[in-house]
Amino acid sequence: MTTRRKLDPIDLRILKALSRDGRIAWSELADEVGLSTSPTLRRVRLMEEEGIIKGYAARLDETRLIGEIPVFVSVTLERQVRDVLARFEAAVSILPEVMGGYLMSGSQDYMLHAFVRDLAHYRDLLDRLTEMEGIAHIQSSFVLKSFLSRTAPLLGDTAA
Rank of each mutant, 00 (worst) to 15 (best):
S38T: 07
L119T: 02
I66G: 02
I24R: 15
V73A: 04
D118C: 02
T130C: 08
E131R: 13
L155R: 11
A90W: 14
A58M: 06
R43L: 08
V81W: 08
V84Q: 04
I53P: 05
P153T: 04
V143H: 07
R59M: 11
R64F: 14
S149T: 07
L155H: 08
T158R: 14
A57S: 09
S141W: 07
I24H: 11
Q108I: 13
V81N: 03
Y56N: 07
E133G: 05
S105W: 15
G134Y: 09
M47L: 15
G106H: 05
L125D: 05
M99C: 11
G67A: 06
S27Y: 00
D157V: 05
A120T: 01
R117V: 03
L112E: 03
A136E: 12
R5E: 14
I53Q: 09
Y56S: 06
D124N: 12
G100I: 00
L155N: 04
F88D: 00
S74I: 03
S74R: 11
R128Q: 14
S19F: 05
S141I: 09
L154I: 10
L7V: 01
P153H: 06
S38A: 13
E68P: 06
L29M: 07
R45L: 08
Y110R: 09
D118A: 00
R59Y: 10
I24N: 12
M47A: 03
R150L: 15
I14A: 06
E62A: 15
A120L: 10
L35P: 07
P9E: 14
S38P: 09
L85I: 15
L125W: 01
I66W: 03
G34D: 05
L29R: 09
I69H: 12
L77P: 00
R5Y: 05
S74T: 10
K16H: 06
L112Y: 01
M104Q: 07
R42I: 07
S38G: 12
L85H: 03
R13K: 15
T76D: 07
L65H: 10
V84S: 02
D21L: 04
K6F: 04
F142W: 12
R20D: 09
S146N: 12
V33C: 12
R64G: 03
L112N: 01
R150D: 03
R43C: 07
R4G: 02
D61W: 08
S107E: 11
A120Q: 07
